[in-house]
C-alpha cells in the first residue's frame, strides 16, 4: 500500500509519514505543487493525502489533473479550511474524503483504512476487531456471529474505539466525539463512564475478545486479544 503525502509544512509531513509508516504503509512525500505533480505523473498511489493550500498552487487542480488523466488513486483532502463549500467542491471533483485540520492521527488512519477498504471491496460498512463485527450502516454489532443489542450511545462509543484500535482515547475527546461539541467541558465524565461500563458488560457477557481498558484514569484503549490484521 503506497501513500503520497502532499503537505507543505515539514513538521506535519514528518508526523504523518511516521504514523503511517508505523502502520506498515509505504509513504512518499511532496512538499509543494510542482513536486506533487511530478510524483503523481510518474507513479500510482493507493492513497494521496492532499493539502489543498500549497505555496505554489491549489491542490484541487492536482485532483482535477488526476481525474482528467483517468487515474483512480484515492484522494483524501486535508485542509485548514473547514468549510462546506471546500468540502463539497473537493468531493465533487472526485476526492474520496475530506479531513479538516487539526485532525487526530487516529482519525486520519481510520479515514485511510476506510478509503482503501472501499477501494478493495466496494464497501466500508464493516469494521472487525477480534470476534466483534460492527456494521456501520445497519448499526448492528455481532460478537462471534451473534448480535448484541446496543443503545445508541453505546454503539457510537464502540464505533469510535473500533476505528481507533490500540489508541489511547482521552475521556474528554471521547465525550466530544460522541456527545457533541463542548461535552468535554463537563465538570466530570461520569456520563462517559456510565456508558462505557454498560458497553463493557454487554461485550464481556457476549464473550467478546476485545476489551475497552481504562488507562490511568485519563482515558480508554480498545485492545484485542488477537493481533490486529494488517490493513
Amino acid at each position: 500500500m503506497k501513500i503520497l503525502i502532499v503537505e507543505d509544512e515539514p513538521s506535519l509531513r514528518e508526523v504523518i509519514q511516521r504514523a503511517l509508516e508505523q502502520e506498515g504503509y509505504v509513504v512518499e512525500t511532496a512538499a509543494d505543487y510542482a513536486r506533487a505533480e511530478a510524483k503523481i505523473a510518474g507513479y500510482d498511489y493507493d492513497c494521496i493525502l492532499l493539502d489543498i493550500m500549497l505555496p505554489d498552487g491549489n491542490g484541487l487542480h492536482l485532483l482535477e489533473t488526476l481525474r482528467r488523466e483517468g487515474k483512480r488513486d484515492h484522494v483524501i483532502i486535508v485542509s485548514a479550511r473547514d468549510s462546506l463549500e471546500d468540502k463539497v467542491s473537493g468531493l465533487e471533483q472526485g476526492a474520496d474524503d475530506y479531513l479538516a485540520k487539526p485532525f487526530h492521527t487516529a482519525e486520519l488512519k481510520a479515514r485511510i483504512r476506510s478509503v482503501l477498504r472501499r477501494g478493495r471491496n466496494g464497501g466500508d460498512r464493516e469494521l472487525v476487531q477480534g470476534n466483534v463485527t460492527l456494521d456501520t450502516e445497519s448499526r448492528r454489532v455481532e460478537v462471534a456471529g451473534r448480535e448484541i443489542p446496543l443503545l445508541k450511545k453505546e454503539f457510537d462509543i464502540l464505533l469510535y474505539f473500533m476505528q481507533r484500535p490500540d489508541h489511547l482515547v482521552d475521556k474528554a475527546v471521547l465525550a466530544e466525539a460522541v456527545w457533541g461539541d463542548h461535552a468535554d467541558q463537563a465538570d466530570n465524565f461520569q456520563f462517559v463512564y456510565a456508558q462505557i461500563k454498560n458497553l463493557r458488560r454487554k461485550l464481556s457477557e457476549a464473550g467478546a475478545d476485545i476489551e475497552i481498558r481504562a488507562v490511568y484514569g485519563f482515558g480508554y484503549k480498545l485492545s484485542c486479544a488477537e493481533p490486529r490484521p494488517k490493513p
Binding site: E9, L12, V15, R18, A19, P102, F103, H104, H167
Partner: peptide, 18 residues
C-alpha cells in the same frame, strides 16, 4: 494559519501516547 501547527502538536502528542 493556526490549524497546521495545531495539527502537528496534536499528532505529536498522540504519537507519544500511542
Amino acid at each position: 494559519e493556526l490549524q497546521t501547527p495545531l495539527a502537528i502538536l496534536r499528532n505529536r502528542i498522540e504519537w507519544l501516547l500511542d
